[in-house]
């Protein structure tokens, strides 16, 4: 495989052609925040939190392949400020109240607030009031805690092959749905495999009846699963 030399944050780094900036950064211990990225499924560049500066252009590191002589900056002032603003927008559009969330302490969004040093949300909160769908016997979805990363949609389609999850509506009313927007309990395509639960970065999709201590998600489950399949 072709070897590529590039710079990340000034460090000379060697990578394989075809790798993404995010993969290479991770391998070299350089932390780039992510939310919609999930090992084992296709990257879509939806959350925009992994933006980096490549020769003055902002690109999502999860979808951009490394190139020879690339000069990648992961921590410029605009990059950090924009990431923080994006995170604030996410907090403001949902109802991410950690204090009584079953994922409190095991939530990627909550961790991002620490990582990105989000002191306060500078835009008004919208306090949405969506109905919680608890019609599925084992799982429930609280759409107010959904960040629309689409990890459930991708894992359901690309790993489980069930295609239960999808998107509906658009703009600020966009939401994830099961089958043709029926209650999850009525979604005939759902195999109840639970991969969406493990993949959901927040407390939006969770196991019913799980206590806070029990609801620790295995986000690496999907990655391990697909890796094993490839090796078979």
């Amino acid at each position: 495989m072709e070897t590529i030399r590039l710079k990340i944050d000034g460090r000379e780094i060697t990578a394989q052609a075809g790798q993404t900036i995010l993969e290479v950064a991770k391998e070299n211990g350089i932390n780039i925040p992510t939310l919609c990225h999930l090992d084992g499924v296709e990257d879509v560049g939806a959350c925009r939190l992994c933006i980096v500066d490549v020769h003055g252009q902002l690109v999502t590191s999860c979808t951009t392949k490394v190139g020879a002589d690339m000069d990648v900056q992961t921590q410029t002032a605009p990059v950090k400020e924009y990431r923080r603003m994006i995170l604030e927008l996410l907090f403001a559009e949902g109802s991410h109240v950690c204090s009584f969330c079953v994922s409190n302490g095991g939530c990627e969004l909550q961790d991002l607030a620490c990582d990105l040093e989000m002191h306060s949300v500078r835009v008004p909160y919208s306090f949405p009031r969506n109905r919680i769908d608890a019609t599925h016997p084992q799982f429930l979805i609280d759409r107010d805690r959904c960040v629309l990363c689409g990890r459930c949609v991708r894992v359901c389609a690309q790993v489980e092959g069930a295609h239960t999850w999808g998107f509906a509506e658009r703009g600020s009313t966009a939401r994830v749905i099961t089958d043709l927007a029926v209650d999850w309990g009525q979604a005939e395509s759902c195999t109840s495999c639970g991969k969406c639960v493990e993949s959901c970065p927040t407390g939006a999709i969770v196991r019913k009846g799980a206590s806070n201590a029990e609801m620790r998600k295995k986000a690496d489950l999907v990655g391990r699963l697909t890796e094993r399949r490839e090796h078979e």
Binding site: A46, R48, Y82, E169, R170, G171
Partner: peptide
């Protein structure tokens, strides 16, 4: 544009909404 945003990426979905507000 806020209404026509597809909702996939955060800046467009939530950012245009905040600007409109």
């Amino acid at each position: 544009t806020c209404d026509e945003s597809c909702g996939k990426c955060v800046p467009c979905r939530a950012g245009t909404r905040q600007m409109l507000d």
